[in-house]
Amino acid sequence: MKNVYIKPENCIGCKHCEVACAVEHSETKNLYTAISEEPLPASKIHVMPTFGVMTYPGKCMHCDPTPCINVCPSGAITKDPSMGTILINEEKCIECGMCAIACPFNAVSFNPSWRISIEREIANKCDNCHERITKDLIPACVEACKTGALSYGDINELIKKERRAVGRTAAQFAAAVPIEEKIPALLKVWRDMALSMSQVGEKI
């Protein structure tokens, strides 16, 4: 199963993924024209602050079983059998909000969409860039992410890679050699400094 894999320790909160997502799902698919569209396109990925300076790019995880499909009364949510992607039929959505309530990741927002003729706010969530995938492209948010916080591929393969990294760290520890940093050194320095700054703020 292919999906977007999130590595929160690499997220620096730049929101580059949000812009790329909104442009990709706009009518014109061009940054300079998308910002003038009516309605304005909305991102389907949301970078949120968490603890201290840690941020997390939250999105639909395309889970299975899929609570939103189970609760949707109008049959607007379906699963693409080939990719395992959970898709919303915008014409069928009745703005009831059940999917948002059922979603364990709170990944569903309600926004206007250029795809529907009637002006209303309908369920909006990640479609794993379904259109791009059929053209052999990776999702727009992954392409935009320059820090490695988002990657796309077979989830088992991606996890295996991460597992190896953890294994290497553990083995190095056992062999009493310096522990390899899991995140880039510069990012660690920045994060440590920013964290201590935020802690100063909390004390006050």
């Binding site: 730049c14 929101k15 790329a20 442009v23 940054l31 910002i35 727009a140 392409e143």
Partner: peptide, 9 residues
């Protein structure tokens, strides 16, 4: 690429 949308704008 893709370059930062905030920067481009």
């Amino acid at each position: 690429e893709p370059q930062c949308g905030y920067g481009l704008l």
